[in-house]
Design a protein around this nucleic acid. Structure first.
Length: 467
RNA sequence: GGCCCCGUCGUCUAGUGGCCCAGGACACCGGCUUUUCACGCCGGCAACACGAGUUCGAAUCUCGUCGGGGUCACCA
């Protein structure tokens, strides 16, 4: 979710300034790469409406856009640093480094990698390789304080004593994130970096690398973080916080995008509801906040409810189709035609997410014999006079023609009058009989959707329920 | 723990020295509507973390305290 928000802000600014929005895959951690992850990222971004101008899937002049396919480029940069004496080889094993860290910790000191007095030469490297020890390359960090001119956080200076000689090429030959990121940003002409605030403390390393490599430093804007409701960094352990899970749960992308935009940014005043295009116009780095935001699902739900109510018929139909394909909705499995789906949308007006429609109308798509009767509903409605009402209603419904909302309304109103009871006494028993519970669309609509034969069949079945 | 960032209603935020005994939205509470659920409508509760200072005047500026978060990897 944090990544989606970052993508959104980058997209907004790129569109507003006629810049280029680039999608690049940073997959230099061989161990953590997940097959299919690229596809998911692209699907999520496209679903949110955040199309990119350059990058994976669409190409561009600076490809390839996958870091694991650009290794020669990073090697060239590393070699350049090596020959210039701005980087050197190191041979410690993970265990050795761990021990050094532990030791520093026991002395209550922050661990800084100790640069050896004599840097290893070619002979050392050959020997170490033969011994089978890991060989990495470390960047020789300059001894100067570095100030990041961040456009959100302001000037942030990190003392040279805080920086040590970090690894830029791992033992497996892959570059580390910092190096690859800096090289690619330079090669791809990136002049603005907007990313999460967790990178702010790393930025001095990036700036040092840029200086050593002779690259220009881009503008930086570090975004406040998105936290869970407990105030911790949002993580998968707090439930589904991936974009796709909201798609499958029946949310509208425009609602999610709108909600996400307000996490760390505000257009000012009381403005809240915006389309993507409006956000493009209103966005500005100056109005990005500095405080972390909590991801409040309740508010997102409210945004979605409003977005669904505001969406035009066509937009809603398309979004509903997307939901049906992305979710495991029983309605999707029923293979309805366009008109049936429109009817469903119409009788469910006021729904909060598409999943509400499943909840409210799922009983329409099961066999009559498979309807399960909710115990409390039966007790509350059928046991208290509901059965009698159903017996009265059955012959009338059998005779009812035409089977339309208007016709049924007329019939049921007459029954109310004849027995001097409110509509609740009539509608509820029917609702329980045909749906098994007390939740459904308006009763006339429900019966029309169900159809006459199935309505009658279900009422007979309810009457046969063991008392 | 070191370093860095941050601190307005429960939540997202408006607010850039007087328009603010702080506005909007969500949530919550009460009511209305009502054939269920949901929607909708009306009303209400609710915050400038604390303490000094600057100033005629501070939510807005300064310092301190406290609190929260991030980061200290051969992860990104």
């Amino acid at each position: 979710m944090g990544g989606a928000r970052t993508a959104l802000f980058n997209y907004l600014l790129a569109r507003q300034t006629a810049g280029t929005f680039i999608l690049r895959i940073e997959d230099t951690d061989t161990a953590r790469n997940v097959p299919g992850a690229e596809r998911k990222i692209m699907d999520d971004l496209r679903w949110l409406g955040l199309g990119w101008d350059e990058g994976i899937g669409v190409g561009g002049p600076h490809g390839p856009y996958v870091q694991s396919q650009r290794l020669e480029l990073y090697d060239a940069a590393i070699d350049k640093l090596l020959t210039a004496g701005q980087a050197y080889y190191a041979f410690e094993t993970a265990d050795e480094l761990e021990a050094m860290r532990k030791e520093a910790e026991s002395r209550k000191q922050a661990f800084r990698y100790p640069r050896p007095a004599r840097l290893p030469d070619e002979a050392d490297i050959r020997r170490v390789r033969e011994e089978g020890r890991p060989v990495v390359v470390r960047f020789r960090t300059p001894t100067e304080d570095i100030t990041v001119h961040d456009e959100v956080a302001g000037d942030v200076t990190v003392a040279a004593s805080e920086l040590d000689d970090f690894v830029i090429r791992k033992a497996d030959g892959m570059p580390v994130y910092h190096l690859a990121n800096v090289v690619d940003d330079h090669l791809m002409g990136v002049n603005l970096v907007m990313r999460g605030q967790e990178f702010l403390g790393q930025t001095p390393r990036h700036i040092a690398l840029q200086r050593a490599l002779g690259f220009a430093t881009p503008r930086y804007a570090h975004l406040p973080l998105i936290m869970d409701m407990q105030g911790r960094k949002l993580s998968k352990r707090d439930g589904d916080v991936e974009v796709h899970s909201f798609r499958a749960a029946g949310y509208l992308p425009e609602a999610l995008a709108n909600f996400l935009a307000l996490l760390g940014w505000s257009p000012g005043g009381d403005r809240e509801k915006m389309t993507l295009a409006e956000m493009v116009d209103l966005f500005s780095i100056e109005r990005i906040g500095r405080t972390n935001a909590k991801f409040d699902r309740e508010k997102l739900l409210a945004f979605n409810t409003d977005a669904a109510a505001a969406a035009g018929e066509e937009r809603l139909a398309a979004a509903f189709d997307d939901y049906l394909a992305a979710s495991e909705s029983p309605i999707g499995q029923a293979g309805l035609n366009a008109e049936a789906k429109r009817d469903l949308l119409r009788v469910n007006r006021g729904f909060r997410t598409f999943a509400d429609i499943d909840h409210k109308c799922g009983f329409l798509y099961v066999a009559d014999e498979a309807v399960r009767y909710d115990e409390t509903a039966v007790k509350k409605v059928l046991d208290k006079g509901g059965y009698d009402m159903l017996r009265t209603l059955l012959p009338l419904l059998e005779a009812q023609e035409p089977w339309t909302a208007e016709g049924l309304e007329k019939l049921l109103s007459e029954v109310c009058g004849a027995h001097s009871v409110g509509m609740g006494k009539v509608a509820q028993p029917i609702r329980v009989a045909v749906s098994g519970g007390t939740i459904s669309p308006a009763i006339y609509e429900t019966l029309v959707l169900l159809g006459k034969p199935r309505t009658l069949s279900r009422i007979r079945r309810a009457l046969a329920l063991p008392k």
